[in-house]
Write a protein that binds this DNA or RNA. Sequence first.
DNA 1: TTGTCGGCCGATCGCCGACAA
DNA 2: TTGTCGGCGATCGGCCGACAA
Lengths: 225, 225
Amino acid sequence: LDSQLWHACAGGMVQMPSVNARVYYFPQGQAEHSATNVDFPASLRANPAILCRVINVKYMADTETDEVYSRIRLVPIKPNEVFEDCNNEESENNTSATEKPVSFAKTLTQSDANNGGGFSVPRYCAETIFPRLDYSTDPPVQTVLAKDVHGEVWKFRHIYRGTPRRHLLTTGWSTFVNQKKLVAGDSIVFLRSLNGELCVGVRRSTRSTGGGDSSAWHLTGQQQQ
Amino acid sequence: LDSQLWHACAGGMVQMPSVNARVYYFPQGQAEHSATNVDFPASLRANPAILCRVINVKYMADTETDEVYSRIRLVPIKPNEVFEDCNNEESENNTSATEKPVSFAKTLTQSDANNGGGFSVPRYCAETIFPRLDYSTDPPVQTVLAKDVHGEVWKFRHIYRGTPRRHLLTTGWSTFVNQKKLVAGDSIVFLRSLNGELCVGVRRSTRSTGGGDSSAWHLTGQQQQ
DNA sequence: TTGTCGGCCGATCGCCGACAA
DNA sequence: TTGTCGGCGATCGGCCGACAA
């Protein structure tokens, strides 16, 4: 899964550690995500936070809901262990400001989510993220292709019409809403990736169980030695 | 699940053993239902058939497809074991001929399964199984309620019209076809249960994996002693 | 600039009798 | 007796500009 699209869907509040970063793992915090009570051994209860090293970060998206989540593999650092220094946050100086991918998120209105309706595209999104529209025809119209988190391509009719003029997605939009089971209040994210490709992601408003399968909660390595 | 409806869906070829009946269990026959190869221990391979006693029979239906299947618990009979005599087949003299539930099965035609069409009810089915229709109105019409294997009630508009006159299910039929994912060639079963209730079941034509979960294949008790 | 609404047109759904197998 | 067909009216999907927030 493309890291740029993943971050656009996750939102600006989400910062991810990089590989080899040192992080504290809080068992209690993770346990509170669980539906069932978790009974820790006494040795873990005594340690509210465990210093770990990140050995792998995988960006993932739920196959059904498109909700993004991540799998972070941790290995506990033994107290006497030595390790090289490392940034905790993803280094942001790899990409200059000019080549940062531009994305735009909009919360779906009732009219956007209504069956039979289209999608009202904010002008900023249409002009800076969508492919350039040829305004010489009347009305200006084009077909827009956008790739979702699974790499599936969605086709939309993008038209600039009405008085006053506004950008709309019409044909193809309701199919997208139905397939993704979007409702008013959910958000949609458009992103122009660095190679110029248009991507589309969703962000659900209602808190579901959250990404991934709860059986995927594991620690790598042996915590008890 | 009602035993009468279960048998109507399973068809007349299916006879079920009763509890305490003696049956032969053929491991090879069951293995051939499995998708993967089954490696029997030598002790089982030497015994192609194992005399068992039926300790439980449960009539079940697939939650999704409505296909009926059964779970039969068996216990091997030790060679020197004594046991009381017992009928192998379900005793049929419990119910007299008059109170036997009457059922009717019809294979869906293309017209029956077509979206937007109705269901052509064979006269015999309408007159002997459906609730009595009041022919004094023109056209004669009634609402018919039928319960499926899960106890869910389906509502159909039953009308007697056309030239020549024929029985049809109209409103409600296409919903049923879509929800049950019926196609031409599948069969539908109507049954009037002993308490006068109308029931409806389906019988699929295409051989799917067959009822139940393959992980449910188990023997009760210890075969090897 | 953009959210919501009513109008409207075309596609589809689904009920109908005709007709023939 | 009943399977299939074409007709056709009702409903729905979906594109449109008007209008106001």
